[in-house]
Design a protein around this nucleic acid. Structure first.
Lengths: 125, 125
DNA sequence: CCTGATCATTTACGTCTGTAAAACATCATA
DNA sequence: TATGATGTTTTACAGACGTAAATGATCAGG
């Protein structure tokens, strides 16, 4: 598995494919219609992702059908690891602490996280 | 305040300056001695950060003393926001949930997070 | 003063990324 | 068959980034 980085613009393309795939380039263009890129730009982004190996494709009639080669969870996991290493030298606690300090979490979110934390702590005993 | 991105290599330089500043370029080079860059590379990174405005400097004798123009907390906050937007469309809960799932947290970390969560939840009532 | 050392700045070069048009290949229809 | 439409691939160009040497400016010591 070759190491590659998914750029910010490429993330938007990946999201569309994670949401629904396989898709033709036209369908991806349509899905990203509200954003700032031309169809040509989006096609380039797809092509670059394909060359990197982040996106796979197969011929269907005269078109290609594109799909992600990596799950959204896995991609998120990698990016998270990279982010943690870069910004916090890998330390989780200060990151979450900073997050809780600054971000707006709903009561449901907090409850849900509390439950997850409890499970994790129980698993530690 | 102009928008700029601090690259991965530049983060390492910033960390050194956050740890102790002001510092001369030579001191930064010395602090990063164990890593993979030549002194020339590190000087370029410093110069780029300065041009971006992430690092400030003042003359001292024949050398410059460099220091960060932005706090570590603020830089972390920006990067965190960018990361959340890109990978999770800004949603915190799934990010923390994924984190708890994958990362190795110590019992102390979990306890500390639990406390933070509780404070946050109390503040919500 | 001259020369070497030292520090900052400029230059170099390849790759990646953002943005998108141009060129090419193929299909469908008149 | 010719032409226009359509989808893919190639090309374009500027700036950022990684990596670092080359050059210029200034200082210090013989």
């Amino acid at each position: 598995m070759k190491n590659y980085r998914i750029s910010e613009a490429e993330w938007e393309v990946m999201k569309v494919l994670w949401e629904q795939s396989p898709r033709t380039a036209n369908e991806v263009v349509e899905a990203l219609k509200g954003q700032k890129w031309s169809a040509a730009t989006i096609r380039t982004l797809i092509g670059r992702l394909a060359r990197k190996g982040a996106v796979g494709f197969r011929k269907s009639g005269r078109e290609y059908l594109y799909g992600p080669s990596i799950s959204r969870e896995e991609a998120a996991r990698r990016e998270r690891g990279s982010f943690l290493r870069r910004v916090y030298d890998g330390a989780v606690q200060p990151m979450v602490a900073g997050l809780l300090e600054d971000e707006n979490l709903s009561a449901e979110d907090l409850e849900s996280l509390r439950r997850l934390l409890d499970e994790k702590r129980r698993g530690r005993k």
